[in-house]
């Protein structure tokens, strides 16, 4: 568990300094910021249809207990990730990034919904997901379901769910999906976003799709 705590602590400088452009606590932080800024300006190219077979129809239950499909009930585009709402480890990279990205996109006029599908329904329940996700973003939606329902969604997105070890303090730890998926309001997968990207770069990728015919 020491690793997870130290790892999360190590993320703080990078996340905190991600957009300041002024002062950095170390050469590594400065380099990370400089690199992120450089990547953010690289050309994206025109959006194209996803060349991989990902996504499809599903039925799950959200953190309020309501049924939810791949389509967003309010007609918003979606950022979808497979992980833990109650994560003791390093989901600290992807989900806070999704929250920050959601806010950044709003400044561009794009309302997107951050959505997490649990890979551990024993840990993430309808009752306990909401408060944890709300700490990240008030619009975050948590999804769970029966084993069959979840297995179907994992198959649709080719998500691995393998137990890699048992943490003596937190229980089973599963390997799980790595990317954030951009879905349109109907649940069609538009592209994928590695969570290692800076928010600025991810923002440009998402906006590029939401501005395009592919997302219409």
């Amino acid at each position: 568990m020491r690793f997870a705590v130290a790892f999360m602590a190590s993320l703080l400088p990078v996340l905190a300094h991600a957009h300041d452009g002024v002062t950095h606590g170390s050469d590594a932080e400065a380099a990370a910021h400089q690199a992120e800024a450089a990547v953010a300006n690289l050309p994206l190219g025109a959006p194209t249809e996803l060349p991989f077979d990902l996504g499809g129809q599903f039925e799950l239950v959200d953190h309020t207990g309501s049924a939810r499909s791949e389509a967003d009930p309010d007609g918003h585009s979606q950022l979808l990730f497979f992980g833990y709402a109650n994560c003791p480890s390093i989901c600290a990279v992807a989900m806070p990034m999704m929250a920050e990205l959601t806010d950044a996109l709003l400044t561009d006029g794009f309302k997107v919904r951050p959505v997490m599908v649990t890979i551990d329904p024993e840990r993430d329940t309808v009752v306990n997901m909401g408060p944890e996700l709300e700490k990240l973003h008030e619009d975050f939606v948590g999804l769970t379901g029966s084993d069959d329902q979840l297995a179907h969604v994992y198959d649709l997105f080719q998500i691995s769910r393998e137990k890699v070890f048992d943490d003596p303090e937190y229980g089973a730890v599963y390997a799980h999906g790595s990317h954030i998926y951009l879905l349109d309001d109907q649940g069609k997968v538009l592209t994928l976003i590695p969570p290692i990207l800076g928010v600025e770069r991810a923002q440009k990728i998402v906006a590029n799709y939401l501005d395009s015919d592919i997302a219409q």
Partner: peptide
């Protein structure tokens, strides 16, 4: 060792 942790934790390889 860190690469193992990150891979297990959902960091893309």
């Amino acid at each position: 060792t860190c690469a193992l942790w990150c891979s297990a934790g959902g960091i893309p390889v």
